[in-house]
């Protein structure tokens, strides 16, 4: 097999297609996985950015999520008012929807919502 590998690397004029490359990577991965102990899936750090972080950091994250929702609603409302000439109403309605979106964001970021698994939670493979 080693002779085969050496021939593959020497053959540099031809770039292997994407699928072949990923197939090779997967083969290598499974070989490595057999040698190293499996990581516990529940405790993986990447699935949720709030894992193992200081409560200050989490507070910062959640408040940012909320404020961002409100700001986004406000900007949208202002644009709608500007474009359609519906002076106060676009801002009022969309700002309120922005509050709701902010609360949604916070619920999603803190892992409360069950409605949308796979969004901010662990993605399906």
């Amino acid at each position: 097999m080693s002779g085969n590998d050496a021939r593959d690397e020497g053959n540099d004029g031809r770039v292997p297609p994407d699928s072949e490359l990923s197939a090779r990577l997967r083969r290598l991965e499974s070989q490595i996985d057999r040698k190293r102990p499996p990581a516990a899936p529940g405790t993986s750090a990447g699935s949720k950015p709030s894992n193992g972080r200081s409560s200050l950091g989490q507070a910062m994250t959640l408040s940012t999520e909320f404020v961002a929702g409100v700001i986004a609603g406000g900007i949208l409302g202002w644009i709608v008012d500007h474009v359609f000439g519906t002076k106060p109403w676009g801002l009022i309605v969309l700002l309120m929807l922005g509050f709701v979106a902010g609360v949604f964001n916070v619920m999603r970021a803190s892992g409360f919502s069950g409605a949308r698994s796979g969004r901010d939670g662990s993605p399906d493979a």
Partner: peptide, 25 residues
């Protein structure tokens, strides 16, 4: 009718929260 606008706003708020989080910290 209510949830789709909220989802749209929630999506638009993403770049805002992404940038504000880093900047504010």
């Amino acid at each position: 009718a209510l949830l789709v606008p909220i989802e749209v706003i929630s999506f638009i708020s993403r770049p805002i929260s992404l940038s504000v989080r880093l900047f504010a910290n």
